[in-house]
Design a protein around this nucleic acid. Sequence first.
DNA 1: ATATCGATTATCT
DNA 2: GATAATCGATATG
Length: 207
Amino acid sequence: MATLRPLPRAFFARDPRRVARQLLGKVLVRREQHGVLTARIVEVEAYLGERDPAAHASAGKTLRNAVLFGPPGHAYIYFIYGNHYCLNVSCEPEGKAGSVLFRAVEPLTGIEAMARSRGIELRSSKDWRNLTSGPGRLCEAFGITRVRDNACDLASDASSLWLGDDGCRIRGIVVTPRVGIVKAADKPLRYVLAGNRFVSGLKLRPK
DNA sequence: ATATCGATTATCT
DNA sequence: GATAATCGATATG
């Protein structure tokens, strides 16, 4: 296995659109007592901070979204629809509230543990895809919650949750509108790895 | 195969 | 009191 290096703070201190693109192909890492969960990032969305009507930062700084306004490279986790957690990483220099939402990852290691967390058996290829394709699903697979992980430093491998680069080269990126929003719903700020099976919301190939 | 709907709660108006 | 950066179950063609 190739060496996995944490992404430097400066990686995140930029426009979230650039961070989003460059996060594709990088690795999400969860260090647990028992072992390590890793997965490749295959789908993300950029949120542009206070000037973006769809962003949680659009109404200014609150207790909930404070991490977005803090230093780059930290986890902003929110609870949604009374059911699910979603993971973002803060971008831009401190004071600016851009972020990237993690929408889907491709499991690499610790797959059985992810399946246990999700409460599913891995039988068909549909089950595999079900594991981590969706912002709520990947958080459940990785045991990510607001209490446990909000404000966690994702730029440090001393954290239980962090982001790394294993040198993987990606092939193509597809850009589409963001999913599940009504304001600014037309802007092309969703980035996916072309043809990746674990991207959320895609139809499975017929037959 | 796609469409619709209910769950369930932190946060903000 | 309404809403939400979702998911999974159920219904229908």
